[in-house]
Each structure stands twice: as structure tokens, then as C-alpha cells.
Computed example of a mutant assay.
Amino acid sequence: MSCIIAAELIALAFFTLWPAPGSKSENKKKATFNDDTIVMDEAVITTQASTPPPPPKPRAPVPVPKDEIIEEKIIVFEDINSSDFTDSLSISKLKGAGNSDQVASSPQQPPTVIRIVEAVMPDAAKEAGIKAEVTVRFLVDKKGRVEDARIELVKVYPEGSDEPRFLDSIGYGIAEATLRAAQQWKFRPAKNNGKPVRAYSKQVFTFGF
């Protein structure tokens, strides 16, 4: 009987002290770790084949046309005494300017322009493509003011021709624009023997050139 008990104790001790095999969870962890390792080994680092194009340059602002009022262009050759020409185009002064003096037909020193006002070409003349030269005859008083201005000659150049046509009058508002500008001119008066005299002067206004 004692021998049987001893044999059972030896068998119990054998099974108790024998090292236990790894658990399933530990094996699963090892397997998972091995799988991750394989995935990392197979990873491939990629790079861009070319750099992206640069962003487009900002466009320059486009100027927006604005409506502007075209005024008559004034050219002044030298300073003049403004008091001499104050309200020089008034009716009272034009009527009585130099009426008692005769006009010198050939003065020793003819009138000299010191202030020009260019005529503005009317829109109707622009649309019609008018090219014209208008000769104006000025009567300049002894203070250099325009006493009278009249159209003396009109030359019109037909389209595609260099030969002018002489006309007695012209439309499209050109005559009115010419005289309106001519009345604003200023002159250094003509002189005879050093004294100012009334005299004529001719000037040409051009349109469409």
C-alpha cells in the first residue's frame, strides 16, 4: 500500500513541476507581431515625379474708361495783362471797339498771336470723316482783342484724295465751332510808327487731320 501511495506522489509531482506550454493568447500576440513586421518590411516609400506647377500670376487691373468732357485747348504764348482783356467779348465792348479809327491795310507790324484757342471738332463731323481747313479773317483792335471774326475760305478734302474742294460754307457744326474758338484768341496789336492800330489777320483752323 505504501508503494502505491509513493508512486501516486511521484506522478503528481511530475505533472505539477513540468513547465506548461505557452498560452494561445501569447501565441496570437506573437503571430500578430510577426504579421506587422512583414507589413512594415513590404512598405514602399514614394516620391512625387514632378513638382506642382506654380500658381498663375495675378492679372494686371484693366483700366475702366471714364467719360470725360473735352474742352477747348488753350495755348498761351506769353503772359498778358488780364485787366486789358476783362470781359473782352461782351457786346458793349465789341460794338464800340475802335469804330472811330480806320483799319490799317498794311501795318508796319502786323498783329501777333499770343493766345490760341483750338476749335473742338463736332461729333457729327467725326462720324462723317470730314477733313477740312477753314480760313478765318480776324479784325484785331488796338488792344489786341478780336473785334470781328469771319470765315473767308473753306477747303474740304474728299476721302482718298489729296486735292481739296473749295466751298462757300460747311455744315456739321464746323463753322460754329470755328467762330466760337476764334473769338477767344488774343493778339499783340498791329503797330504803325510805334502806335497800335486796328488791322486784319488770317488764321487757318484744321479739322480731321
Rank of each mutant, 00 (worst) to 15 (best):
I170D: 14
S83E: 05
I45W: 05
A43T: 06
L167E: 14
F187A: 00
K73H: 06
S2K: 12
G208I: 05
E68A: 13
F205Y: 02
E127V: 05
G208M: 06
F138P: 01
S92C: 05
Y157Q: 06
A149C: 03
R180V: 11
D67Y: 07
A7N: 04
F166V: 15
F77M: 15
N34P: 07
Q203M: 13
M40R: 14
R150L: 12
I70R: 10
S201L: 00
P122G: 13
N99D: 11
Y200H: 01
V117T: 07
E163F: 14
L9I: 12
A97P: 00
M121Q: 14
S50M: 12
G129E: 11
S25A: 08
T178H: 05
A104V: 14
L9P: 02
K24A: 14
P61A: 03
P164C: 15
V120Y: 13
S169D: 15
N99E: 15
T51G: 13
T206D: 09
K202H: 04
L153G: 03
A119R: 07
G144A: 08
E133K: 13
A31F: 07
F14M: 10
L9D: 09
V204C: 01
P21H: 11
N27W: 06
A177W: 05
V120M: 15
Q184L: 12
V136W: 04
T112R: 04
N34H: 11
T47Y: 12
K30H: 05
C3S: 07
G194I: 09
E133N: 12
K24F: 10
A43F: 02
L12F: 05
A125G: 13
V140W: 04
K191H: 06
M40P: 04
G129P: 01
P111G: 02
I69P: 06
I130D: 04
L167H: 07
W185D: 00
Y200L: 12
V44G: 10
V140R: 07
Q183N: 05
F15D: 08
G171A: 14
D162C: 07
E163D: 10
E127T: 08
V103L: 05
I5Y: 03
R150H: 06
R198P: 02
Y157P: 06
L12K: 06
I69Y: 13
I45E: 09
S82N: 02
I69N: 09
G160Q: 14
V134N: 00
N27H: 10
W18F: 10
Q102W: 14
P164T: 12
I4Y: 00
N99V: 13
Q109D: 06
F138T: 07
S161K: 11
F205M: 05
E72A: 09
R150Y: 09
S83C: 05
G208P: 01
G144P: 03
A190S: 00
E42F: 12
D162A: 10
F138W: 07
Y172E: 11
V76Q: 02
G144E: 09
E159M: 13
A175P: 02
T206F: 09
G171P: 04
T112N: 00
S50A: 13
S106Y: 03
A49L: 11
E118M: 15
E159F: 09
S106H: 02
V154W: 00
P55I: 03
I114V: 08
E147R: 14
R188F: 01
P189S: 03
S201T: 01
V39E: 10
R59C: 03
Q48V: 07
A181W: 05
D36L: 11
T32R: 15
K24Q: 10
D148T: 04
I174P: 01
V204L: 03
I170P: 12
V154L: 02
L167F: 13
